[in-house]
Design a protein around this nucleic acid. Structure first.
Lengths: 190, 190, 190, 190
DNA sequence: AATGAATGAGCTTTCATTCAT
DNA sequence: GATGAATGAAAGCTCATTCAT
């Protein structure tokens, strides 16, 4: 088994346990057990639990980006670009409920606050959503309100809807997903 | 000191500590200390920590309802009613950051899932928002999509925006609050 | 059982275990067991293991001082005062081997270095030995060399001899104790 | 690289780490890293950590003996021989603080007790100090008290003074070193 | 009714040692 | 011979809950 395999096993175990039980329902010993490694082994790959949690977030984030960009074209209209990103993201999260649940845990935690602050400070490289909104504002297609609020108008409902789907409060099909993303667009468009 | 006083002291202490430090930053002994009671005393009023947490949520919920209803009239248009409820709620949360932080903690936790499930199952009495959306749909002013999604479109951004204000990512004044609520309205209206 | 009793039980258990096995041979769980209390109970009396260790040192120190001062008179000659302090200390340590072993552990550890630095900086109240040497120097009875060296000349051998007695390398009786203290005096006297 | 080289690298790394951080601040993996070898390699040269520690002590001891004997003559007076050994040792330890710190760690540990017991039992070959004191006693120049006590009177202060120098409590120059060794002589001479 | 000292299971993390490569 | 990834027992410490007073 290669080095990478074990690291992946640990990340997968952490994803499953934290997604289902939260950070506190995922003791390191249990993660190790689910990963099929010794408790100490985790610490060869991750300095401590916080680092494991943060790395796992980055891993998921990294996994999503190419999915979002697949078929995404800056040539299309702002509306089309928004629709593309919104539906692709919604679909991805619904098809990967573990990753969604993990993201939710992460975002609603001190880790997430730090991450969001860094993002808003522009510490993060190219951000496809920020770019979209900035283009939309300059083209006078999107409401001229603070970026932060645009994010909230777009992501707030998307995450909420995904959660409700995963919790079985609704069944999102392609139609409902389209309606939802369009409704979000209504809130950000001029 | 009456029985009710002590109960209130405990709830207040729990609110402050949990809002600022999360559930795990609020040990029962600390809550007791802040409430000025013995650790064991809490258990005379609340069966265990989970019950305390849930009761505190209901308390806050109960406190908000009359605020929302003050000046609220079923005679006004759906749009006006939505604007009233949205801005009043936004203002209330911003002026009561402890309660908002607590609600966030609660919603993003296993407790919150249970609560939301109960609500959607209609276990809860009269719900002013459900009523508003149902009226809006029947008057063909609001999009005819599942209630759950309408909730998400309206509350998702409001909560997100409040959090960003409290985290100092934006400064919400009355103007921005109005813009935000109107943007939410754009997403639910036909 | 009074509050003080339990604290004393813990200190006694710590003394025994650390004296015999060193700091690392005395896990908190074992100290708790020997003290007849729960593991968590120790933390009601001592913030952490370091504090327990330091407090125990002070306790022992405090216990020795009145013994040293019993029958000690500033009216007597420097030589007599030195002999009194030296033999009383030697006798006390030999009769209380656990305390001696503990002191040795403590002195030869990072704790001890800090403590010694504080002492030399004069942070500690009245120090009977410092006083003795300062009097001796001003009366030109004791060698005019740095205080630190005088301490080393006097205590170095006393502690070494005590350890050898406890380890059964020698059997110190009153005669040998007298000879030893006198030899130490020879090294500090002019 | 020869077998001996690797062994030496390990011993050197162990010396540095243990001297600065104590036995518990020197994990085997770190020693291996500092020595530039694999963790498992140490176990080809030393059965376990205890053996490594003991061997390192012997190594240092062996290194000091020729230094002590350089210029040492049994023809000189006891006083002169004592002065020679005392100052040379003091100087050596001060100039090699790592070795001193290591010796201190070793002596004040269960390892040291065993070693001292062996030494006093006469298990060790020729001992230059024992010889000196025995000569001194038979020439009636040194106090007729047990050898062990003479060792303590001579080494107790020397080690204590060295430690204080290394901890920066005093600055030992050649003069102070001479004074100190002479003071020790005062305590052992008749 | 109210207390708060006591509990002990459970947490994260370290490290001497092994062994497949 | 040499490696270093893997191990898992054991450490210090926390905290929800109990119960004698």
């Amino acid at each position: 088994m290669s080095k990478t395999d074990k690291r992946d096993d640990i990340l997968r175990a952490a994803l499953e346990l934290i997604a289902e039980n939260g950070f506190h329902g995922a003791p390191m010993a249990l993660i190790a057990e689910h990963a099929g490694v010794g408790a100490g082994t985790i610490y060869r790959y991750f300095e401590n639990k916080d680092v494991l949690i943060t790395e796992l977030f980055r891993e998921i984030e990294t996994r999503i980006i190419p999915v979002l960009l697949d078929g995404y074209s800056l040539q299309k209209s702002i509306n089309e670009r928004f629709f593309h990103l919104g539906t692709v993201m919604l679909r991805y999260l619904i098809e990967n409920p573990l990753e969604f649940k993990y993201l939710e845990q992460f975002i609603n935690s001190p880790f997430g606050v730090v991450h969001r602050r860094d993002k808003l400070m522009g510490k993060n490289e190219r951000d496809v959503f920020r770019e979209l909104f900035e283009d939309g504002i300059s083209q006078q297609v999107v409401k001229n309100i603070p970026l932060v609020i645009l994010f909230d108008l777009a992501f707030g409902p998307l995450l909420a809807v995904t959660r409700d789907h995963i919790l079985d409060f609704i069944q999102l099909d392609e139609d409902l997903m389209g309606l939802t993303v369009n409704a979000c667009w209504d809130s950000v468009k001029r």
